[in-house]
Write a protein that binds this DNA or RNA. Structure first.
Length: 149
DNA sequence: GCCAACGTTGGC
DNA sequence: GCCAACGTTGGC
């Protein structure tokens, strides 16, 4: 089993939206590395830290898990949508998404707090210039965060 | 709103 | 295949 951190801008999709929906397709990822994680590595049952980014208080705010393995992201075929990709076809899809299920809301663990723990110093999200919206999390890091939540 | 960091695009 | 230009991300 693997562990992941998935970023979402609360103005796009917040923990409240997630709690309302229960589960959601993680569509709209348009970065090859993040796509490859979903398509090639993420398995049902993998644990996910749900993270609010680009907002007043960025941080971890929920625990989730992969509920459906990757399949072609429907939004790439929607001509009128924001995520339309003219180079993608149903025969040759370019983008994929998994689905994730919210396991539980947690208190907000702010980015500042994450940064304060030496145990978490190697997390991808803390590295300079990191912009990946989906990053692998070390099992020990995940366990440490669980304990602190 | 600013700006550093990074990915992608496209001309050559 | 190089690399400058451009767009996006995301913390502050």
């Amino acid at each position: 089993m693997r562990y992941w951190l998935m970023k979402s801008e609360p103005s796009e999709y917040s923990i409240d939206d997630f709690a309302r929906d229960g589960s959601t397709p993680w569509f709209g990822v348009r970065n090859y590395q993040a796509r490859n994680f979903m398509r090639d590595q993420m398995k049902v049952g993998d644990k996910v830290l749900f993270y609010h980014s680009s907002c007043a208080e960025p941080g971890i705010t929920g625990l989730a898990e992969v509920s459906v393995p990757a399949y072609p992201d429907a939004s790439q075929f929607d001509r009128d949508g924001h995520y339309f990709d003219p180079k993608a076809t149903p025969e040759n899809p370019r983008w994929f998404n998994v689905e994730v299920r919210l396991v539980k809301r947690t208190r907000l663990m702010p980015l500042k707090e994450i940064r304060s723990y030496p145990e978490l110093a190697n997390m991808r999200i803390l590295q300079r210039g990191n912009r990946l919206s989906i990053t692998p999390v070390d099992p020990a890091e995940y366990a440490f965060i669980l304990k602190k939540l």
